[in-house]
Design a protein around this nucleic acid. Structure first.
Lengths: 204, 204
DNA sequence: TCGCAACATGTCTGTCTGTACATGTCATCG
DNA sequence: CGATGACATGTACAGACAGACATGTTGCGA
């Protein structure tokens, strides 16, 4: 339940409304932890009943700004300091790579080129953004500096993936004659498949 | 719904039971797309009613092996060739970085060192595994080669993150005197906060 | 003053996902 | 022959999450 702590972390910077928080998720945070407004509003309601946040003020257009409570602040800190990081992640780009052998070599090449472009562009955009931070355009607050660190990770990951997509296009692993042409050989009943790959070909 | 296509992709290699598939997810695939066995069994049932897979055989211990149908194979291929890649991903390590400013500098340093070690070790393990593939220990089937490509991405991402964690420890961004000491300043009503960071400090 | 865009908050529904619980089979070893 | 462990499949439930729907407000420009 990272969303909970993410909201607390954002509120630790100062009071904000659900709308504000949703915007921040759709901007920066959403790229590493997607969250839509329905989820945010309902989580805020739960956080309020739990006493970790409280309504600070109500503005125009029935805007409700929340403030983090001392218990809430303690809870984010506890999360950051004590809770083990969950290193599992979900990345479709990588997941698909396991099935590249099913693709037509032409399509695969085009696919990889497109991926490379995407990651390179994303990296460039983040690098540009980091430069504005380094120039001090956003001040030197402690939050800005933390965000700069997060940004650096984003840059490096995107660069790594761009490099990978390029490497994959250039390597001869996938250019071998039979690549992509594979039929799924399901020996007729009684004809054992030549390679029981699905039994042995696993990895740690 | 990537799980659906992942299962089809695995079954394209040859018939397998839910148990086999669950094992493969817990081994390789699970690191980029986690899935537990209840989800796999129920998805298999749905795939069967959809006619994308069919029961190939029933073995001992009521083992049920599934085989992909022609429609199923067409569906994976369609997914690979036509469906846009969803580039959003979820990574707690990175998500937490946005909130580093709330951490005690000592704790943060220790945290980053731990993260660096984790990523370096993971990268090393994957590199070792890739080497066995390159040596040909797993044959040179088209699937093995695709897996090698996926592996390379894993290596590069983990190396990138190890490098990032090291950089973050060394950079002076976070060593400045006030880091981690920040109180959340919630100006008393009427006292506007000096920095309305939460309103402006957003990013693309 | 009309309409539009941005602000702002919510509900509802369905699916996805993870945890816990439950059941039964087969082989092996002591 | 009994225990154990790996094999194998499922159900039940709760919480996370996405997409669609619904509603009202405010400011501004035509």
């Amino acid at each position: 339940m990272s969303l909970r702590h993410g909201l607390l972390g954002l509120l630790a910077e100062g009071p904000a409304s659900g709308y504000d928080l949703a915007r921040r998720f759709s901007e920066a945070l959403g790229s590493v932890w997607p969250a839509q407004h329905p989820q945010i509003y309902s989580e805020l309601a739960r956080l309020e009943t739990a006493g970790l946040i409280e309504v600070e003020s109500t503005g125009p257009r029935r805007r409700k700004a929340y403030r983090i409570t001392d218990e809430g602040l303690a809870e984010v800190r506890r999360w950051l300091a004590e809770v083990e990081v969950d290193h599992t992640f979900r990345m479709e780009t990588l997941f698909r790579a396991y099935f590249f052998w099913l693709m037509d070599p032409e399509d695969l090449k085009a696919h990889l080129a497109k991926e490379q472009l995407f990651f390179a562009e994303t990296a460039a955009a983040l690098r540009g953004y980091a430069a504005t931070k380094d120039r001090g355009d956003w001040g030197t607050s402690t939050q800005t500096r933390a965000m700069r660190i997060a940004l650096e990770a984003g840059i490096r990951i995107n660069e790594a993936l761009a490099g990978w997509a390029q490497w994959a296009q250039e390597t001869d692993i996938m250019t071998a004659e039979d690549f992509g042409t594979a039929k799924h050989q399901q020996g007729a009943a009684g004809t054992p498949p030549t390679t029981p790959a699905n039994q042995q070909d696993t990895e740690p």
